[in-house]
Design a protein around this nucleic acid. Structure first.
Length: 318
DNA sequence: AAAGAAGCCAACCGCGTTTAA
DNA sequence: TTTAAACGCGGTTGGCTTCTT
């Protein structure tokens, strides 16, 4: 019973693909399609596992793939979608024509996570680090809060120093009179102390935090909390995912626009799954384990990705 | 110029789900 | 209906390239 194996495990080649193998696979698929991955390597004359062939095709050889740099617009899309669906790379990639889940995942892990961290934003929750600390601190007694601040500093110090020194990232202290950081050892220590002080203050006064939009510091907020925010590179006061944060194209950057308007839908099934996910996150009512769709679709009928204001997608899952 | 560190990405691994015998 | 492989996905790793010291 059961299926026959996809390949003889001992008799398959592994590792990097050669151009010759790529040609064999591409030309076979061009003629016969991708109906049965188990048979493809055999019929194409490849000593590869079917699974390996499938990966090579889907991640590299497919003619519709883009291989260049990610644009600001694509990065913006990834960050926004990640804030909604988390590490669902296939769902995110489905919204980026020509990009694979592997591409998106690699780009996130090597670039975007660091960008967000550098902005003082936790790439998992998409909230400012200081706010997360404050949230946790509300459940702790003061001595534990002090330890938390120490621990948090230990976690983030290296990352921040890296950004502040090695990457030459300067930032403005908008509400304190501290001079911009440079790269000498003593001043790095000063930076640590400043961060430490502001973080501790923010943590010890959690009641001063805004409640509805934790990262929207544009209103009347605690000077201490704002100070803590300003301790992070790029100052997240008035934070939003936008061109000032990611792109270098100024006000014309696609980061500032409603996402991907005009793009065509290339993955209907994934689109549906993402819509389900988004609706789940937006509090869709359930009945017998199945979500009931409410009428307000975020996707318009032209299969444009969506037309929501940015803020709606930025609401954290946590 | 050389060595080590860091960045990058293609490919592999393992797990949950689907499908075919 | 049962079983085992295919499939799809996210996490991890190995090795090549680039950067820094």
């Amino acid at each position: 019973m059961g299926r026959i194996p996809c390949c003889e495990k001992d008799n398959v080649k592994r590792g990097q693909w050669t151009p010759e193998e790529d040609n064999k696979l591409s030309s076979y698929i061009a003629q016969h399609g991708t109906r049965n991955w188990r048979l493809i390597p055999k019929h194409a004359g490849l000593q590869r596992c079917g699974k390996s062939c499938r990966l090579r095709w889907t991640n590299y050889l497919r003619p519709d793939l883009k291989h260049g740099q990610f644009s600001d617009s694509e990065e913006h899309t990834i960050v926004k979608l990640h804030s909604v669906v988390g590490n669902r790379w296939s769902l995110i990639a489905a919204q980026l024509p020509g990009r694979t889940d592997n591409d998106v995942k690699n780009h996130w892990n090597t670039k975007l996570k660091k960008k967000l961290s550098g902005m003082g934003i936790d790439p998992v929750t998409h909230k400012p680090f200081s706010h997360l600390m404050a949230e946790i601190a509300t459940t702790l007694a003061p001595p534990q809060v002090a330890h938390l601040a120490e621990a948090a500093l230990g976690c983030f110090k290296d990352e921040m120093l890296h950004l502040l020194t090695k990457k030459r990232v300067n930032f403005q202290f908008q509400q304190s009179n501290v001079a911009p950081v440079n790269t000498t050892h003593d001043e790095k220590d000063d930076t640590v102390e400043i961060i430490k002080l502001n973080l501790s203050r923010a943590i010890q006064e959690p009641d001063m935090l805004p409640s509805s939009k934790p990262w929207d510091f544009t209103g009347a907020t605690s000077a201490n909390f704002a100070g803590a925010c300003n301790a992070f590179p790029g100052s997240i006061t008035g934070f939003q995912y936008g061109p000032s944060s990611f792109g270098n194209e100024g006000a014309k950057s696609p980061w500032s626009q409603s996402m991907c308007t005009g793009s065509t839908c290339t993955a209907g099934e994934q689109q549906g799954r993402l819509q389900e996910k988004l609706e789940d996150e937006n509090g869709g009512e359930s009945e017998g384990g199945k979500e009931i769709r409410n009428g307000s679709s975020i996707f318009n009928t032209d299969c444009v990705l969506w037309d929501l204001p940015s803020d709606d997608l930025m609401n954290p899952i946590v």
